[in-house]
Amino acid sequence: MQFGLYPIPESNIAGVVNLSEYMQVNCLGYYEFEKTSYTRYRDHGRTDYLLIYHIEGTAQARSKGIDYDLASGTAVLYRPGEEQRYSLSDETPVKSLWIHFTGYGIESLLEKLQLADRNIFFAAPSDDLLPLFHMARNEIAAQRSGYEVYIASLLLQILTVISRNYLQSRFTSRQLETQTNFDLAITYIHSNYDKPITIPEIAHIAGLSISRYIQVFKQQIGTTPKDYIVKYRLNKAKELLFETNLTIRQISVIVGFSDQLYFSRMYRKVEGICPKEDRKRRGMFKGVT
């Protein structure tokens, strides 16, 4: 049997609450049992949050009075004051990781990640999570300058990966195909921003009608495909503007604007300043037009 505990600050069986920080990791650890039965039960939970990531083996977790069998890759999230029951079977080797945390921003973060409506999140195992846990454990052990902030950032990444895996696992095969095609359409924009791109063209790559593609694009990206393409081209233009001595006209053509005046107009609209003035303001390549 192996059991690890890495507390920040000192371990407290009731939990640690800190509402002056957006997110704070209190402690983390792991279970690794060969064939030993183990149950962790708290009828009123703790005062902080608990995240368990079940890696392998036979285990159960309780949610709202019901015990659920956990598949590999399942995450369990308990809020302050909630009944906690996590049971490991002695039938098979079991591995799991856990983190206790607190902070005033947790609930709003869980809402954004769509993790606020349940305790148990069934998803496939992820190769992205274990390295993040290990990095957090090593930071606690080393306690280098700023390690508390760094560990909090790792927890944010862990929750984000769990959210993505959970939401993806809820897709039907058709939805997965649509999402894959949508991602291909985004990749196409990134690879061909310097060429003429039409909305019907990328909608076809995504396997959607034009109207549906625009709707899905706005839902996932937060803007229209046209505005996204323009913004992406302008970001590429800024890189050339400040890192090369190319002329404004040359840059406009390279990033996909055939009309220099239209390029300058869109640059001013988005950045609030024309490209020539922006370059001079930054003091780079003066005299180049």
Rank of each mutant, 00 (worst) to 15 (best):
N245C: 10
K231L: 03
A203P: 01
L241R: 01
V149Y: 12
Q179D: 11
F217W: 00
L167E: 03
K231F: 14
F263R: 01
T244H: 08
N181F: 05
L261I: 12
V216A: 09
D194A: 15
I158M: 01
K276H: 00
I151H: 06
I229M: 07
I151M: 05
I162M: 01
K218L: 07
E148M: 12
K218R: 14
E271V: 11
L155K: 01
V230N: 09
Y228S: 11
T244M: 11
I248P: 00
A185D: 10
E239H: 00
R144V: 11
T224N: 08
E239Q: 02
I210L: 02
H204M: 14
G222C: 07
S163G: 10
I273M: 07
P275W: 12
Y166W: 10
K236Y: 12
K238Y: 15
Q219K: 13
G272C: 06
Q219C: 08
R174H: 12
R268N: 10
L240R: 06
S173D: 14
G256R: 12
I221P: 03
S264I: 10
I254C: 02
V216E: 08
L167Y: 04
Q215V: 04
V253D: 06
V230I: 15
T247C: 02
R268Y: 06
S211Y: 05
A206V: 08
T244N: 15
Q260K: 00
S153T: 00
V161W: 01
N181D: 04
F182R: 03
N181T: 05
L261Y: 11
A185E: 11
N165W: 00
P225R: 14
V253P: 06
E243I: 04
V216H: 00
A185Y: 06
Y188W: 11
E271N: 13
K195M: 02
R265G: 02
S145Q: 15
S258W: 14
S191T: 07
S145C: 02
R170H: 05
S209V: 04
V255R: 08
Y193E: 13
N165R: 02
T180R: 00
K238C: 04
I229L: 03
K218N: 15
I197H: 11
E201G: 07
D227V: 06
K238T: 14
S211H: 04
L156N: 07
Y213L: 07
T172Q: 04
A152G: 14
I205L: 13
S191R: 05
E177N: 04
Y262Q: 14
I205T: 09
Y193V: 15
L167S: 02
I273G: 01
Q215A: 14
A152I: 02
A185T: 04
T187N: 15
I186D: 06
K226E: 07
S191Q: 09
Y267I: 08
A206T: 15
L155H: 07
K226L: 13
H190P: 01
D227M: 10
V253Q: 10
F217P: 09
V161L: 03
N192F: 11
I221K: 08
T247L: 07
I205Q: 10
T172A: 01
F182K: 05
Y193N: 13
P225S: 15
R249W: 15
I162E: 01
E239P: 02
L156D: 14
R249D: 15
E148N: 14
Q175E: 14
I151P: 07
F263P: 07
T224C: 14
A237D: 02
T247F: 00
S163A: 06
